[in-house]
């Protein structure tokens, strides 16, 4: 397993198969890359307004639904004013 161990207790960004972006603290994972995220928020991107954050709480995300997990650099992330970011949401994965 190209291990997810290094991401435990870190703030991560999950990109899901449908293009949604979710940030949270990785509480745990298993062999199938199912992931438990605490204190998580969905980041909704749009061209019309800044990024909206929707609090979701504690989530278990099924491994099959995940396309990418990224470790957030907290310094950079907190220095970005999300309300100024304009971008289309990421495309869904198309097989």
């Amino acid at each position: 397993m190209s291990s997810l161990q290094g991401y435990v207790d870190r703030r991560v960004l999950l990109v899901l198969q449908d293009g949604r972006a979710i940030v949270g603290v990785m509480a745990g994972f298993d062999q199938r890359s199912n992931i438990v995220l605490s204190d998580c928020k969905e980041r909704v991107f749009s061209m019309d307004e800044g990024v909206e954050e929707i609090a979701l709480g504690l989530y278990l995300v099924k491994g099959d639904m995940i396309s990418l997990i990224g470790e957030l650099d907290e310094e950079i992330d907190s220095s970005v004013d999300l309300s100024t970011i304009r971008a289309d949401p990421l495309q869904p994965i198309r097989y």
């Binding site: 470790e71 650099d73 907290e74 971008a87 994965i93």
Partner: peptide
């Protein structure tokens, strides 16, 4: 510019299937 979603991401895990 079109994909600022991962601005603060320094390293990542990509699922093989995608």
């Amino acid at each position: 510019n079109r994909h600022p979603h991962m601005m603060a991401v320094k390293n990542c895990f990509i699922r093989g299937s995608v």
